[in-house]
Nucleic acid binder design. Sequence first.
RNA 1: GCCGCCGUAGCUCAGUGGUAGAGCGCAUCCUUGGUAAGGCUGAGGUCGGCAGUUCAAUCCUGCCCGGCGGCACCA
Length: 860
Amino acid sequence: MVRYNPKETEPKWRKAWADAEAFKASIDKSKPKYYVLEMFPYPSGRLHMGHVRNYALGDVIARFKRARGFSVLHPMGWDAFGLPAENAAMERGVDPRGWTYDNIARMRDELKQLGLSIDWTREFATCDLAYYGQQQALFLELYERGLVYRREATVNWDPVDQTVLANEQVVDGRGWRSGAVVEKRKLNQWFFRITDYADQLVDDLATLDRWPEKVRVMQENWIGRSKGLKMVFRFAGEPPSGAADGVEVYTTRPDTLYGASFVAVAADHPLAQLAAARDPKAAAFVERCRKGAVSEAEIETQEKEGYDTGLKVKHPFDAHWELPVWIANFILMDYGTGAIFGCPAHDQRDLDFARKYDLPVRAVVLPPGADPATFDVGDEAYVGPGAIFHSQFLDGLDIETAKAKAIERVEAQGDGEGATVFRLRDWGVARQRGWGCPIPVVHCPRDGMVPLPKSALPVALPDDLEFGKPGNALARHPRWKHTSCPKCGGPAERETDTLDTFVDSSWYFARFTDPMAGEPIDRAAADYWMPVDQYIGGIEHAVLHLLYARFMTKALADEGRLSVREPFAGLFTQGMVTHETYRRQSGEWLEPAEVEIIHEGKTRRAILGGVGEPVVIGDVEKMSKSKKNTVAPEEIFDVYGVDAARLFVLSDSPPERDVQWTTGGVQGAWRFVNRVWEEFDSQPAEVRSAGADDEAALAIRRMTHRTVKAVTEAIESFRFNSGIARLYEFLNLLKGNPAKDASPAVLAARAEALSAFARLVAPFTPHLAEECWARIGGKGMVVEAAWPAYDPAFTEDAQKVLPVQVNGKRRGEITAPAGAEPAEVEKIVLDDPEIARRLEGLTIRKVIVVKDRIVNIVAA
RNA sequence: GCCGCCGUAGCUCAGUGGUAGAGCGCAUCCUUGGUAAGGCUGAGGUCGGCAGUUCAAUCCUGCCCGGCGGCACCA
């Protein structure tokens, strides 16, 4: 008996795979293709358990599909630009480029240790000149097609990272990375015209049937398409000088126009500016709105306030009806038209405002069953369904019909038209940082902004950036930005903003199809491999990265660079790796390794190892350095081997749920690895062909074929944990029928079982599978072997045991042929003496036969 | 407030319209030349609550309670 030693077997098999180039992807039109991709990592330098889980999940799919006869592409690269490198540079005085590439080298080694079936020949980093140079070419193409523009805009400014953030990157008013409260600033900014694709980005979500519903909903909410009416409220009397002849508002509730009681505009609205110029009090109010609204977080919590400009507008359906125009702090200038009409009775926000300033509240939607004579809203707006009333030509209509009719009337009057409005804003892509992809544009005193010709690409970052202080290292570099204008040849300055790193990750999946191509994307390679069949990553990118990648794919398709309009046919969002937290009484966090857990009957407590000081066991939370509840993958690999670590993160929870890391759990996985090996090791090398199956052999064969079926289905439906559970049961059965003293038939059945077992376990524990495969004399390596097939004759019983219930209580069981018809089963049941005894003195009312499942007799 | 997910053994989680499962933990015993190890056996569950559908509900439906996540002055 030789104990299983992962320290020897694991490196041995990784070398064998590499020598055989087992995972090299190639275009093979004789096979179906399958592209598996996990979101590529930021090269922090350290592999964490989240990576282990993410890449192990993808590896299961990749290995499974390869065994199933697919031509598989499973690449790996690095999302390598970004702020951590600059911060490290600032803190430690190192060079970001060297720091990044050193980290990549370290993480590559760790990832390779995981035994992933990756084609490493395709590896690249986004900070490779060969990659970002091609990205600059794409930028220029987008520019030519009018999808890139530059304008002065109010932007989200992160005061800690000292850069602009896109709307998607501001979470609860704070920077997604730094956590700093975001400020509003006016800056010249570069934008991608993602709003041009807003309709498609919503509509095409419906085609993504292998995406989680949750992510589709989040994207739909983010894009926020709403259909309504843009219309003008004209001024009563002379318009103020400098103003148009009315105020244009946007509404989704034109059915409530007869409930209007005021018009309100944003503080940044031109009309508010105009009012401020004439009226010092208005100016003061506008100023106050501006000041109060420094951060997103504050805007969302501040109380509703307004100022009456004294201006009046006419109601569109009644020229004698005048409405006041207010400036209000809750109107957003960059949504709709920056102006609304207020209908307090049917909008809570308008109602709060109206109650505060004592404006009229007119109900125009009557809830079902309410009395039109007495119905009124109190302090709660009515937003439910109902019939329109107090509304002239709209009276009696339901809400949807009334909307259509109101729009029709407004359009006929020439006062506006039906319109679709989005919450989505254009994507601000410029970052004032040095460690990123330079924007390939120069500023010329004579010709203004001039995009570089493609012949001038790539624009490389200088080697000697100075990162010692905050701000943009590229902008303060002494020489880099000085160049000549491609148009006039005179002196000009390069753009010193770089691209958001989300641009880098918005097309890398297409580059993987041919990472050496001399142009951004090799069309033939992309046509073969795209779309990504299965994309795997964290839910935190539900909006950000996944929205940008979808936009870029559509833009590239319109440019003729891609044939697909969606990048990811299947998306899977995996859960996090969590761990218990521990703290001293003083509140100081403790690492799991410092803590000793003591079991006392059913309860458990913790003490500080070696000292005995009691430790508070806290919540189970995502592994994070700040709470010290991390477990280093390399230490686990060292003690238990890579396969046990992979097996544990795959087996303990369904992949979409969080998995809680526990020492006991990984030990259980490690024991499983050892028990599997023992089972293979105890099997004699030579098994003579046996005669007929005996009872035990038949049971093994049935289990073998059933397990093949179950594991296959489990992998296909992302239930890896239940697939592994079936392998546990399979192993338990084999242990119950050991090779020692077994009949020839059982030995033969075991041989068949073990051959299937090695291949079934291979996606989860690939090294162990190879060692086991070799032990039983398998041909070649498991990575070259076909996935086992099952014979339905073994997965279904010829005879079924059916429980028999009388009035819902179990009273016996009978045996019937599989698939027997109800009449046949009923006869067997009624012939059964035990059942007959139970039915003595009762009248049978009804016999229910569920084919192959159960029989129930209703009797009285 | 709206949307989604979750609630099954002490813990972490499977599962099914028809007798409730795994790993860990716990208890008993065995092994003590696999030994900072291995094995046998066992205890432990009104499947969050209430109601409905059904011959039969842990599973389907509705309501409620609890936990988690996302969205939210978007006109």
